[in-house]
Design a protein around this nucleic acid. Sequence first.
DNA 1: AATATATGACGTATTTTTGCGTCAAATTAC
DNA 2: GTAATTTGACGCAAAAATACGTCATATATT
Lengths: 116, 116
Amino acid sequence: MAINKLELFEEGLRRNAALFKALGHPARLAVLKYLAGIKTCICGDISNELPLSRTTVNQHLKELKKVGLIKGEVEGVKTNYCINPEKVEWLEKTLTSFIEEIKTSSGIIKTEDDCC
Amino acid sequence: MAINKLELFEEGLRRNAALFKALGHPARLAVLKYLAGIKTCICGDISNELPLSRTTVNQHLKELKKVGLIKGEVEGVKTNYCINPEKVEWLEKTLTSFIEEIKTSSGIIKTEDDCC
DNA sequence: AATATATGACGTATTTTTGCGTCAAATTAC
DNA sequence: GTAATTTGACGCAAAAATACGTCATATATT
């Protein structure tokens, strides 16, 4: 893209898009699933679970942290990563309300074949 | 990326990630909102609503069509785009079930501060 | 103190995405 | 028939994402 056009869209759309984007890579979904399953914070050996190098995984962790879906807590030389429950709740609300908006403003709930 | 590593992840994650990715751009969210609001299929003048060129919008439409969230129906020289209700329903189910999986396998519902 | 380990910062190469202009084909209007 | 519209295909350039290696730093371990 020649120019960055992202700021031409309204704030809400940009925020939602950023959230979706963060979830738009299998590695990051895998990280979330893994962290969810571990429950107790593991010391950043997540890379062993994925078919990616440690530095690459680190980058994905950074992305997830950026949108707040995970937290990283330094403990000595190690770092404990875990899911941020509040953000997951917020994610769910955001997504469902967006979809609900789509569904209601289109007539999905009531009408059938109004369209096409 | 030197090599394409995507196929190293399991099918389910890849499908979900692809879906999230399609929603990971404000222009595409804007298109969805617009189509939802229009209800009746408009003849592809969506580009007038967005701060992007026609060809760029066309590309985004292609992306949305690829994941099935919208349908395009040719009518003479024009093309009518509209939201695919079934896919939106499916999207909602997919998202909520993924999030639910995260929430239950981590102990978000019951425990507090088990983690971090 | 010397060594080993864990981590993030940095740089780099490759691929993908984004954005747009141009063009050709098809259709509609005149 | 001729001109105008609408659209998708194609190609191209800039930007971002992806993947990884190397390095420096900080903390354990010996």
